[in-house]
Design a protein around this nucleic acid. Structure first.
Lengths: 320, 320
DNA sequence: CTGAAAGCGCTTACAG
DNA sequence: CTGAAAGCGCTTACAG
């Protein structure tokens, strides 16, 4: 009977149909726990990111969902909110449930052992959006240094000279890479980097909105802001508008990620497409490949970002 | 040993600590599948909504997460995208995994049997945000007719006479209730309801943004829009601004839900707080109570909404 | 080809 | 109080 229900070729079609019909009639429910106990495959994949409600991760999750659906895997989502303890608990839960694999965007400060402990207990891991040095697993993310340089160079080419970087943290590889990309672009253009021209921290709209007054009060009167991501950029533009200045005219602003929202912001946001869909799709595929026993290379793959120019950037205007 | 690991009082403290220490040393992993097979409790709760990436549901999910964490339940999230088949598959998966319960915001057109099938197979259900007539389970949502009347009456009291309702669908109880609340308020004020003054459909920013031109082209030149939710309202305001008009001045706009974003929109959005946190918290608690064997009443509970007045509404201005 | 039996890792009722 | 045994519902290797 169990063979028939799983469409085994060992069972004749007519027999199979009859059995399935009967199973439905008596309200039979397949017990995956029991099957999993026997086969040590559960059909469950864990996915953990900083915050699933953040649209950047949401876009990655959507493409992961599509791929895993195709592979008939159930997925369990969780936020770690950059709390290492929460992340460890989640991996523990996956191990206890006998999950088949995990896709994670590791919490800030994740030691490689926290990832390898999963691997060593038969839970293959794939990283997205962030990578961890010393963790010998496949990882997919955008080329941040290159991407932020695209945005910075775009502003420089428009004639901006006093460009501030807003948001992000030095505690992730992404944070360091983006800041470095900005620094490199500025130095390559022979532009000065004054202290106070980096306002680290903001990563969401609210924080971008709140930092606007601090940005506008800088004594150098910068004419442009390279933002950590689209959320910060949109929040900042709202804050600039609230202060009576026109984003895209008085102040140029760039975002990062190219969320769906970037195109309908006011003004439409110039930003860097970060390949979320691509990252999610490839991570899910490589995990499915691993589950099917394929040998995959455990290296970091960088997706090449693209600049999308819209209305939030223009020639510099001096404020008086 | 199993007693010791579960902190049973039957085992002396010293013994327990020694066993736990040893378990850690040898890398013991508790097998929840096996335990669940034996006890028929899995510690898993399913949560399914239209779209977890929608901030409205995201806010509900966050409070559900907090409560379930406290009850030491793992939760599995899923989107149904208003696809009944997807929703059925998810409930099937939960049954197969032996989940302990499910919290759902049912897909459009969910027949009560689709919910009762879970109940009858030992998977207690609780509804959030939407209710289903004939499904004998607890449900929590806002009082939509009352809430939308708050917004409509606010506009009327400012002097608006030509007020359009934008977004939503008649296919959910929520959709019907909100439209009815708008109609009731208009009629109570003796205001005319012209055809074309309802633009159904939009439920997200993109759609709100795109419908702006259609709204602005209405021959009656309405002075205000009551929007289905905050996302539509923010999209609409962006569309209005793109067309060169000033939302909050030339056109008054109200939202619904009071997302975190509403307060930092430009202009800050006048909207109706819909009790997302409250809905999620109470739904999770009642489910945990059911899991602990408590008898709970299976009735619909309406959370009373509140109007939050900000800058997107003002006295009417005639357009020429 | 078919059917009965073993075993996955727990928990719990029961015998000693 | 302690320890061995039964059984949850599957899958699969094996005997017939």
């Amino acid at each position: 009977m169990s063979l028939a229900l799983r469409d085994s070729p060992l069972v004749a079609e007519a027999t199979r149909d009859r059995i399935k019909e009967h199973a439905r009639a008596i309200g039979y429910i397949y017990n995956r726990r029991a099957a999993s106990l026997r086969t040590s495959r559960s059909g469950i994949v864990g996915v953990v990111v900083h915050d699933i409600m953040n649209p950047f991760y949401a876009e990655i999750l959507r493409s992961i969902e599509m791929e895993l659906d195709r592979g008939r895997q159930t997925f369990i989502l969780s936020n770690h909110y950059d709390d290492l303890e929460k992340q460890r608990n989640f991996i523990d839960t996956l191990l206890q449930l006998g999950a088949d694999g995990v896709i994670m965007s590791p919490a800030i400060g994740t030691p490689p052992e926290d990832i390898m402990v999963a691997e060593h207990n038969g839970l293959p891991a794939v990283l997205v959006a962030r990578s961890v040095d010393g963790a010998d697993v496949p990882a997919f993310r955008g080329d941040d240094a290159y991407g932020i340089a695209l945005a910075t160079n775009h502003l420089i080419s428009l004639g901006h000279r006093r460009i501030v970087m807003i948001g992000g943290t030095d505690q992730t590889s992404t944070g360091r890479d983006r800041y470095q990309g900005y620094v490199n672009a500025m130095e390559a253009a022979g532009l000065e980097l004054r202290s106070g021209w980096r306002l680290p921290g903001p990563r969401n709209k609210q924080a971008g909105f709140e930092i606007a007054s601090q940005f506008l009060a800088l004594k150098d009167k910068p004419t442009a802001a390279v933002c950590w991501n689209d959320l910060v950029a949109i929040g900042l533009m709202n804050g600039i508008a609230r202060a009576g200045l026109r984003p895209g005219v008085d102040i140029s602003v760039t975002g990062y990620d190219d969320l769906e929202e970037a195109a309908i912001a006011t003004p439409a946001l110039t930003t860097v497409w970060n390949g979320q869909r691509e990252v999610g799709r490839r991570a899910a595929r490589v995990l499915l490949d691993r589950l099917n026993g394929a040998a995959v290379k455990t290296t970091l793959e960088l997706i090449r970002p693209e600049l999308h120019i819209r209305q939030s950037t223009g020639r510099p205007v001096e404020r008086t």
